[in-house]
């Protein structure tokens, strides 16, 4: 049984529907993070104390995390090009490399949170720290979601050699999560 929806296969723009939708997801997420970052900038300019608080963030861990994420973005590109060549084995391998680097990111993040909390910088210490945990927490949640989705794609689709286009879609999303970090890293870690 089961009839295939014609609408889903149509492509008046020439862009596959799945990819188009991911772009719109990203567009909607940009304004969410945009709102957060605008809030941060506003406060940062208004309150000198925010810069003082920012001095306590751990630039080394932030830098290492930037490295993990950027490298993972490279691997997801490799996974995409393997998927283009319908090379399931390589694509799966690189997807798992990406997930692994996402895991490194999350691990460093946890260590960072733990040391900060044990030094007394909690969600309630000051508004800077409230913001820090909200923004990096929301970003970390996106990383985690991306990892889960990527694992599903690797094991449920690529392993069974189907839905190859999903590698590109998750790749787009992963790059977006990366770019959000590229904004958060200088704002929270470098600008002291």
């Amino acid at each position: 049984m089961g009839h295939k929806i014609i609408a889903t296969g149509r492509s008046a723009t020439g862009i596959p529907t799945g990819r188009l939708a991911v772009w719109w997801v990203i567009a909607s997420e940009i304004v969410i993070f945009g709102g957060l970052i605008a809030t941060y900038l506003l406060n940062r300019f208004l309150h000198g104390s925010w810069a003082e608080s920012a001095a306590y963030t751990n630039t080394f861990i932030g830098g290492a995390n930037t490295f993990w994420l950027l490298t993972s973005s490279y691997f997801v590109v490799l996974a995409h090009s393997a998927a283009e060549k319908r090379d399931a084995k390589t694509a799966r391998k690189y997807l798992w490399y990406t997930i692994g680097l996402g895991g490194m990111f999350m691990g460093f993040k946890s260590y960072e949170y733990a040391t900060e909390i044990s030094h007394g910088f909690t969600l309630f210490t000051s508004n800077f720290w409230s913001f820090y945990y909200t923004a990096t927490g929301l970003h970390g949640f996106h990383v985690l979601c991306g990892m889960v989705i990527m694992a599903i794609i690797a094991e449920n689709d690529i392993k069974k050699e189907r839905n190859w286009h999903r590698v590109e879609n998750i790749g787009l999303y992963w790059h977006f999560v990366d770019i959000v970090w590229i904004f958060l890293f200088p704002l929270l870690y470098i600008a002291k």
């Binding site: 049984m1 089961g2 295939k4 979601c145 989705i149 839905n163 286009h165 999303y173």
Partner: peptide
């Protein structure tokens, strides 16, 4: 976000049958 999972998960085959 979880949106993407569904976004990418759906663009194929939907057999909303005639049950």
């Amino acid at each position: 976000m979880a949106d993407t999972a569904t976004a990418t998960a759906v663009d194929h085959h939907d057999d909303h049958g005639h049950s």
